[in-house]
Structure formats: structure tokens, C-alpha cells
């Protein structure tokens, strides 16, 4: 019995430092933000900050803009990354081998440098404009298009990596069995590849959504001034307008958005696990 206690205490002792760090650096700020978002000028409980962010047209526009950019970016990244992953999984070509070696490179380029490079490349008088002619250059920088493009640049490597690992875990034998049963390329994809990799797609989607909805560097440097992504808007309310309560309310709202996506992912995982345990 004494031995059991000792090992329990040892376990607790080993976990405690990281738990305390989590408590101080994550849980306390979260709690503090939630509390601030519900605290009025007289230190009383209030909904007025939420009332403000959900009625103020400027912020509502920002929310709409953030959701549109996030959803579009997620969709585009998923489609492109999934296509690349499928190509890399099933192709033996030299091109596939080269893509396989290089697709992770954007992950190793610091965000700010990538954004500045992107601006130099695509601004109205940037390199592309000089090559194709300024009059033919579409507006990319300080525009949603630019933000979508940079989101794709940032997120494709990691998403592709996740999806490739999912596709590689589908044994060739399953594909061969399906072909043997008469499945053509389309049916192979629809009945086998997609169902056997959609769980990882959900994981990728969760990470993508959380990353893009709260992104700051790229929207701050590339997006237009209004509407803004919520990350930028939150920073401005906090440090430019000194509206700490409003920025806390925005932070809690973003946290809720991410929680919904997280819950959706957890729910689908539990459902799958139940099916597997059956």
C-alpha cells in the first residue's frame, strides 16, 4: 500500500511542474479574459461588451470577414493539400519525388519574412507586375485574394503532411481489393480513399480553422484596413483604443468559435471509436 502511495506521489510530482506552468500561463489568462469580458465599469457582472461587439456594424463586419476568410482558406487549403497528398501517395513519378522533398520548405521560412517576400512579389509594382505589366496586375496585396494566397502558402505544408500520413496508412491491399472488385478511379476515391482518410481531414480542418481564425501577422501586413480579421481587430481594441473589455469579449468569442470546431472533431472521434469498439 505504502509503495502504491509512493508511486502515486512520484507521478503527481512529475506532472505538477507542467501543470503549474499550464495553470499560470494558460488557464489564468483564459479565466482572466472571460472575467474581464463580463465585467462592467462598476466592476459588476454585465453583458454590455458582448452587446457591443454583436451590434457594432464595424465589428460585425470584422466577424463576417474573419469567418469568410477562414472558411474559404480552410476549403482551398484542404482541396489543394488533399490533391497534393493523393498525387504524392499514388504517383511514383520523378515530379512526385521532387514535390515530396520540397513541399515542407514553406514551414521553415519565418512568417514575417514570407509575408514581406509575398508583398514584394505580388504588390501593384512588384516583381510579377513588372513581368506581366502593371496594367494587367490584379489587386492582390491589401485584398482578400492576397490574404487567401498567403494562408494557402502557410498552411499547405502541414496539412499536406497530415493528409499524406493518413493516405499512406491506407494499405495498398485495400486499393487492390477494390480494383479487383471492379472499382474505377472515381469509385476508389469516393468509396475507399475518402472514407478512410476523412478523420485526418477533420483533424487538419480543426488545426486550420484555429490557426487561421486567430492569425495576426499576415492579416496585419497584407489585409486592408476595414473589414479586418478578428486577430487584428482585437489587437487594435486592446492596444490602440485601450478597450480591454471589448478585446477580451472578442477573444472569448474566438475561443468559442474554436471550441465549436474542437467539439465537432471530438464528437466525430468518439463516434468513430464507438463504431470500432462495437
Amino acid at each position: 500500500m505504502r509503495k502504491q502511495w509512493k508511486s502515486a506521489l512520484l507521478g503527481l510530482g512529475l506532472v505538477m511542474p507542467s501543470f503549474l506552468i499550464l495553470l499560470v500561463l494558460v488557464m489564468y489568462p483564459v479565466w482572466s479574459s472571460i472575467k474581464t469580458s463580463f465585467t462592467g465599469a462598476d466592476d459588476q457582472f454585465t453583458f454590455e461588451h458582448y452587446q457591443y461587439i454583436f451590434t457594432e456594424p464595424l465589428i460585425l463586419n470584422n466577424i463576417r470577414h474573419t469567418l469568410i476568410v477562414t472558411v474559404l482558406s480552410c476549403l482551398l487549403v484542404l482541396i489543394i493539400a488533399y490533391s497534393i497528398a493523393i498525387y504524392l501517395r499514388f504517383s511514383q513519378s520523378t515530379v512526385a519525388r521532387w514535390i515530396n522533398k520540397t513541399y515542407l520548405i514553406p514551414m521553415f521560412i519565418p512568417g514575417v519574412i514570407a509575408v514581406y517576400g509575398f508583398i514584394n512579389f505580388y504588390r501593384d509594382n512588384g516583381w510579377v507586375a513588372r513581368i506581366i505589366g502593371e496594367e494587367y496586375m490584379p489587386a492582390i496585396i491589401y485584398n482578400v485574394k492576397g490574404l487567401l494566397m498567403i494562408n494557402i502558402w502557410f498552411n499547405i505544408p502541414f496539412t499536406t503532411m497530415l493528409l499524406i500520413s493518413a493516405l499512406q496508412s491506407i494499405p495498398n491491399s485495400i486499393i487492390e481489393g477494390a480494383k479487383d472488385a471492379g472499382a474505377n478511379q472515381w469509385r476508389l476515391f469516393w468509396h475507399f480513399i475518402l472514407p478512410l482518410s476523412y478523420r485526418t481531414m477533420l483533424v487538419a480542418l480543426t488545426f486550420l480553422f484555429m490557426g487561421i481564425v486567430g492569425s495576426f501577422t499576415a492579416p496585419f501586413l497584407i489585409d486592408r484596413n476595414a473589414p479586418q480579421m478578428l486577430g487584428v481587430s482585437m489587437q487594435q481594441h486592446f492596444s490602440v483604443f485601450n478597450e480591454i473589455e471589448q478585446s477580451s469579449s472578442l477573444a472569448v468569442f474566438m475561443f468559442l468559435l474554436c471550441s465549436i470546431v474542437g467539439c465537432f472533431y471530438i464528437y466525430s472521434n468518439i463516434k468513430e471509436s464507438k463504431k470500432e469498439l462495437k
Partner: peptide, 8 residues
């Protein structure tokens, strides 16, 4: 197939 290849 050797590994059954049933679709899980």
C-alpha cells in the same frame, strides 16, 4: 489476398 483485404 493474403491479408484478407476486407474494407474496414
Amino acid at each position: 489476398f493474403q491479408s484478407y483485404n476486407l474494407w474496414p
